[in-house]
Design a protein around this nucleic acid. Structure first.
Lengths: 201, 201
DNA sequence: TTAATATTCGAACGAACGTTCGACAGATAG
DNA sequence: CTATCTGTCGAACGTTCGTTCGAATATTAA
């Protein structure tokens, strides 16, 4: 009853599918494209997945569960709110950079599922937004004019927009990118940072 | 040689197509869907447009040209950099709210065009990114740790992500939303705003 | 009027789509 | 051996896709 080869084949299918979905888009990708990308036959993929929609669901569900669980762990220490917010940003950005294909599929194909499966993913999304909105509420100044939920969407936009421009093999490593996002979101671009900056040339 | 009815029919086609593309996605929308939405026949639409790809291109080109031109006009006054940045944010957000369908198609279908037409749109995009990156360079503190281009992408992400959550008929009017975005981007969420805030309860 | 031009559309084309079916090989169990 | 379960796949199904064609109608020009 060793189902290891089964699990490995399914992982392989999901991983390649995420890659091709990220490159071409879900609706522009045919099951025949995935057949070529995975080396499996067209019919063979249906042994692991009921339909194309379920394939997208599995990719999104696994990725979202992973990033959400990691976010909760990143907040486990008892730091002050602003620091915990930094931790969450760092986690989200580094997770994004480490799983670009899956996170792009999660961000960009957020409306591509059929109704019931969409509802399940939306439930996870609501948890994540609530988590961040509460954290922002704790971190920001009293009497701020900024709405927690709007601020949460602003931060998610800042981070998730990564999929349109960020190159994991480019000039900007994930760590420094997370720092810059945290700096902008917490202090804005017109404020000096607390980090050590060379004021030489 | 009055081509007014022609122009009006084309506008109608582009407007309805933008609406349906925004609702269903470009690849998930068939020409038959557009036929129903516009009231035109399937073949009749091809009198105004060479192919489906050109339809998407016209929507994106018109919208991008419009928002880019408006942005340049919004920067025409000789204000200081931070204020000009506020003007640009206000313009982008209000334009987005006023043209949700077209801006969603522009943001979300940024990789759906075929090669040559994609290149033309990318040229406009580069202009907009350069414009914003330069403006950010002028507005931010010396010695900041934030890269201008990364900051530009961060701001675009914050604003363009609107298409995933913003309801133009909801609780948040475009003006105040633009103010919040400008506040976050310029000063961050942990800084008191310069606006008058009631400190009562 | 006639002729040319502008605009519309039903019907069809070939291609590509997601999915299914039945057969087939390999492993395991009795 | 036989029976059963797991995994694979070529071939085909019916549907939908973007696009085209030729005819039809409306408009304009002479």
């Amino acid at each position: 009853m060793s189902s290891l080869p089964y699990d490995e084949r399914l992982d392989h299918l999901l991983k390649q599918a995420a890659r091709v979905f990220a490159e071409q888009g879900y609706h522009a990708t045919s099951m025949r494209d995935l057949s070529k990308a995975t080396g499996m036959s067209l019919a063979g993929m249906y042994y692991y997945v009921r339909c194309k929609d379920e394939l997208l669901y599995h990719i999104q569900e696994r990725c979202f569960t992973g990033v959400l669980q990691g976010a909760r762990e990143a907040l486990d220490d008892g730091s002050e709110p602003a620091e915990r917010l930094e931790h969450l940003i760092r986690h989200h950005v580094t997770f994004f950079a480490a799983h670009m294909s899956e996170m792009k599929v999660l961000s960009h194909e957020a409306e591509s599922l059929t109704a019931e499966r969409q509802t399940a993913i939306d439930h996870l999304k609501r948890q994540y937004v609530d988590l961040l909105a509460d954290l922002i509420g704790d971190a920001q100044s009293d009497g701020s004019v900024v709405d927690n939920r709007v601020a949460a969407y602003a931060l998610f936009g800042m981070m998730n927009w990564m999929y349109t421009w960020y190159d994991p093999n480019g000039q900007v490593p994930p760590g420094p990118l997370a720092e810059q996002f945290a700096n902008v979101f917490l202090h804005g671009i017109t404020t000096e940072t607390t980090s050590s900056i060379s004021h030489g040339g």
